[in-house]
Design a protein around this nucleic acid. Structure first.
Lengths: 341, 341
DNA sequence: TTGAAAGCGCTACCAA
DNA sequence: TTGGTAGCGCTTTCAA
């Protein structure tokens, strides 16, 4: 491994007959230096391809300019979109991002947190797992003076800024749209009620029914545990085979809606004429199903970007942040599965 | 920001009336230390929640235990899968991964490389952009003694280990399958011929035709530039409207196949009876289209995991690696779009 | 406007 | 088996 030794500040200082401090100041744009010296140093550095030793700078300044980011699953399209947004914004401010996954398990989330903390990240972006009902592992960041910004899936067990889409409003609009299309018996494949955004979507669903004079029917709400395609299939089957089947289904996510769609199609139901269908998340793939799936866009890129911006802002101000909750708007994306025609 | 000062090696040494070196050795499991001392130090460290200062260790050892990883697009399912694999394997060996994207542009790839190099990564995992026809920016890593492992999309402009799926064989099998299903006029929406894996898929397509006694028809090959859905749509339209339309289409990726499928369906062609369709990549979504899309699985997780393993291995042996090319097998995934029935 | 020098926390070399 | 200590490259305080 040839590894030619890189030039250091001291080398420059020696060659230019200056002190290391002067060279450092010249390179970092300090005032109170003669224009002449600055020019000379900069030219020399340029010419000899000087790059500061990041590890030394980090060590000295006691920061890494690295943000940690924990999501349930990278491969989920929504999360890869948030990662994309976070990455771009971080880069713009000179930060990079170290990723970790929780697989929606608290155990893995704790491991990931400890890992990132150990790696010396300056702060954390996290979308908590479905199981997260305590936050000691996140509190550890705060105790080291490292801010934590939560996004999308949040927990109140940790004090800190939180960023979500307006799940209530998004669900409300989705269900209101179904009602406007003439559906009257609207079921909801929900998530776990203790998960905040799942709960908000459920409440938005319920409120939309009430506001439009429809009665809420407990039997039409089926909570998914894993938020899986299989659950979408199974619960839809059970709903449609019940004595009083719904004429539309609002699903907690597009994945669940796909399972639902599969059951409906394979059992000969016409979508959207016999049964209306609506997802949430607006996966890329919702455009390609037959019929195409109406959904609610969560603007993952914006959310990731915004979260990263909030974290960097806290870092700049040496602040851990308060309990502020930022809600981003959603957008109803109407496709064929919910338009009776 | 409360930031209670963390305990250091020196603190332990002072309190235990030992020297810092002894404490360091005890904690890092050096031999030639009395069991007693080791116990005492470990207990004390445990009790006072000592964690080594990563930045200091990195600085001292002149390494970060961080791998850089550059992919064209995180949000592409295949790449998020490779990231997942790389991440898990890296973690297992005590490495983390810093991500960057090239958006398939050389310009961005160069920026990303410089960025990661500046961040002090120990090595690089990269799937190069479609535009990469030189590799000075990657050579820079080698010059600093940092190994570079290429995966999936590779370039010969850089010496170093390369990991690909057997694109030739995957394409060959896909086309052979179409032929076995009775299709005789098989078109290919290819990629840019200067991109290695696109070229290999094209050659596999061609060889399969020849081996089965079908004549290769130049007019049935349409190279996509962006590998986009739109191109799939447009080229399929142009193929089907040509004097001698194909009866099956093998697409360079699933995304292109989706565009193709959209055109075929909207123009009233029956898939698979009138026209057979085959993708490549096996996106999650291929299962959900109507008809479901046959494809070739690339085992992204395995590839990411393997690439990361190769890189870490080089790091362990202080080696930059040679020009070895590892080919991973693909798997034909037969769904409805290619089975006449 | 510039220099001298301490020191961040850790590791590893040389001694004992 | 343990200690002493130099030094990684940089920033920053204090002094000139």
């Amino acid at each position: 491994m040839a590894e030619k030794r890189k030039i250091t500040l001291k080398d420059i200082a020696r060659d230019l007959k200056l002190s290391p401090s002067t060279v450092s100041r010249a390179l970092n744009g300090y005032p109170s230096l003669s224009e002449e010296t600055i020019q000379m140093v900069k030219e020399y550095a340029e010419k000899h391809h000087y790059t500061p030793n990041t590890m030394a700078v980090n060590f000295r300044k006691n920061r890494t300019s690295i943000l940690g980011m924990i999501v349930p699953q990278i491969v989920h399209h929504f999360f890869s979109t948030t990662i994309n947004g976070a990455l771009e914004t971080a880069k713009k401010h000179g930060y990079s991002i170290l990723l970790a996954q929780s697989y929606d398990h608290l155990k893995d989330e704790i491991l990931a947190s400890q890992y990132l903390l150990g790696m010396g990240v300056d702060g954390l972006l996290i979308s908590v797992s479905n199981e997260t009902q305590e936050a000691d592992h996140l509190q550890a960041f705060l105790e080291e003076g490292k801010p934590v910004v939560q996004f999308d899936k949040i927990t109140d067990f940790l004090v800190g800024p939180k960023l979500v889409v307006d799940d209530f409003e998004g669900a409300y609009q989705a269900v209101a749209h179904l009602i406007k299309q003439g559906y009257r018996k609207i079921a909801h494949l929900s998530g776990r009620m203790e998960v905040k955004n799942a709960n908000a979507r459920f409440l938005g669903y319920k409120k939309a029914l009430e506001d439009h004079g429809l009665t809420f029917n407990e039997a039409w709400v089926r909570p998914c545990f894993d938020i899986s395609e299989q659950e979408g299939y199974d619960f839809t089957k059970s709903l449609m085979e019940s004595p009083n089947p719904p004429d539309a289904i609002f699903c907690i996510t597009d994945l669940v809606a796909l399972g639902s769609m599969n059951y409906l199609k394979s059992s000969g139901y016409q979508i959207p004429t016999q049964v209306g269908l609506m997802g949430f998340s607006n996966w890329m793939l919702s455009d390609f199903t037959t019929p195409s799936l109406s959904s609610v866009d969560q603007f993952g890129y914006t959310m990731g970007s915004k979260a990263s911006e909030m974290l960097i802002d806290l870092l700049k101000h040496q602040d851990l942040g308060g309990n502020e909750l930022v809600k981003l708007p959603t957008e109803l994306v109407v496709r064929k599965s919910s338009v009776k025609g």
